[in-house]
Amino acid sequence: MVPFAGWEMPVEYTGIIDEHLAVRTRAGLFDVSHMGQVEIAGRDALRTVQALACNDAARLQVGQAQYSALLTEQGTFIDDILVYRLASSHFLLVVNAAHAARDVAWLLEQAPRFGEAAIVDSSARYALLALQGPAAMEVLQPLTGVPLGEVATYAFAHGEVAGARAMISRTGYSGEDGFEVFVPPASAAGVWQAMLDAGREADVRPCGLGARDTLRLEAAMRLCGQDMDETTTPLEAGLGWIVGWSKESFVGHEPLRAERERGAARRLVGFEMVDAGIARHGHTVSVGGVAGVVTSGTYAPYLKKAIGFTYVPASAAAPGTELEVDIRGRRARARVVPLPFYKRAR
């Protein structure tokens, strides 16, 4: 167990590679109850979400979710989030555990400018279990009356799972099909066990933080606070697609539009190691005399190679560009590759 944003969390159960491959080939179960939840509700809830989160929440039907971000006035990341439209004027934001307190404070401070909406930190009301992998639906279906095949990707439904009141969302952080199930904390242990029992035949593995990180990185999903922060913009991070450009205004929109006009000067790229070794978070990367750092780096168990993210000048972002990583004093070659590293067959 390791401390993580105030939570005690397991790094691994049966081993990172074993858990990682279980999710890619069957299914794995993660307790991600550390994630924070913030509800925004009231007459001007949509207006508030539209102003404070960069994606276009007006495009969400009730029952749909979208990837979005909270940005500073400079257009840089405060946090990346999922926005769920629970009802016409009721939204649920799922935020990173490490940033939850700061996000809530920022939302409370900003929201009054945009009308009448209540901001409620409801993190303590939800436990969150993520069942991820190609077998996720067949494992979960016997535990719920919700017809899971009718829940589209990035949509959610309310119902019961193993007798517990639940919100079932077809989302995840693994690069596989799967579900994130919100349940009352008192029901979490029972639902966890029911999912593992239901997954016995499919050989579902409980998974820890280690596999969560290798899976998300292999699927090229960013980790906010590591791959982007208050010094990086969505355009630099390759996340221009989560910006609602057609919205008239939102916090941070002016510098972002200007950057979009002139083109981001630096870009997040994916790389794979050419020489042996694993580039890890914080290692120095150089390309054409310009130094940067590895923002995330790991051994990718499914692809069986060492991969990572770094920021490079836009001129060095093309796939094939050679990079050099300083791995504890040894200069190891790497090269820029197209993202995502891994994409599941559909």
């Binding site: 081993g15 590679i17 280690g210 042996a276 070794g277 694993i278 051994y299």
Partner: peptide, 8 residues
Amino acid sequence: LGDVVYVE
């Protein structure tokens, strides 16, 4: 260590 992937 867990799963060993490189030995130098």
